[in-house]
Design a protein around this nucleic acid. Structure first.
Length: 195
DNA sequence: GAGGCGATTGCCT
DNA sequence: GGCAATCGCCTCG
């Protein structure tokens, strides 16, 4: 199967639909040391204006969140402590929404992933968390502001995801009632899902 | 399995 | 200048 980026129109759907639609798609990163990719198996939606867990809550607009106000399909990377997380910007222009990619299942570039993550690891520990998959695929803050429709970082047509589950998001305990929103989506039974 | 801490970035006082 | 953050790893039991 030839791997090529999905069109811009794919990203032009409501954020919750996009979060589900991303499951099963292929996340690809090309770099000087090779290409690595994985099937997306877990996502979370962040819908800015009314979502206390989102960086763009209340339309908070700063240099960091600026990209969330742009058209859908942009790459939003965020550095936290020693790790980097990757989001897909969603929603129309001036609607600061995004989908966090929390886990993928390795596809291409397995050796590269071991090299980046450490050799002595179970395969599922390569990419079963938002900070892990970015390291395995070589995604970092330099990818901020790119677009997912073209190399070196893009999303390609994938496979049928299977049964999709939903539930509360992770790691946002101090976000009031937003903590309860069932905006986390994952592929049922996939062993690369973070929990 | 639970708990604690690393060590970066950028926003806010 | 301080502090909180979409987390991961190591250590201890």
């Amino acid at each position: 199967m030839k791997v090529q980026p999905l069109p811009q129109s794919f990203f032009e759907q409501p954020t919750l639909e996009l979060a589900k639609g991303l499951l099963g798609k292929l996340l690809v990163k090309e770099s000087a040391s090779g290409t690595a990719s994985g099937w997306i198996v877990e996502t979370e939606a962040y819908i800015g204006p009314g979502d206390r867990a989102a960086h763009s809550f209340g339309n908070r607009r700063t240099p960091r969140t600026e990209i969330m106000f742009a058209a859908p399909g942009y790459v939003y990377t965020y550095v936290m402590h020693t790790h980097c997380l990757v989001n897909v910007v969603s929603g129309k222009v001036d609607q600061p929404e995004a989908v966090l990619i929390r886990a993928v299942e390795p596809y291409q570039g397995l050796e590269l992933m071991y090299e980046r993550r450490g050799e002595k690891k179970k395969e599922q520990e390569l990419t079963n968390g938002p900070g892990k998959l970015t390291k395995a695929l070589g995604i970092d803050r330099n990818d901020y502001g790119r677009r997912f429709v073209e190399p070196p970082l893009y999303i390609a047509k994938g496979r049928q995801p299977g049964i999709i589950m939903s539930g509360p998001r992770i790691g946002i305990d101090n976000s009031g009632e937003a903590r309860e929103y069932p905006w986390r989506f994952w592929v049922k039974g996939n062993r690369f899902v973070s929990r």
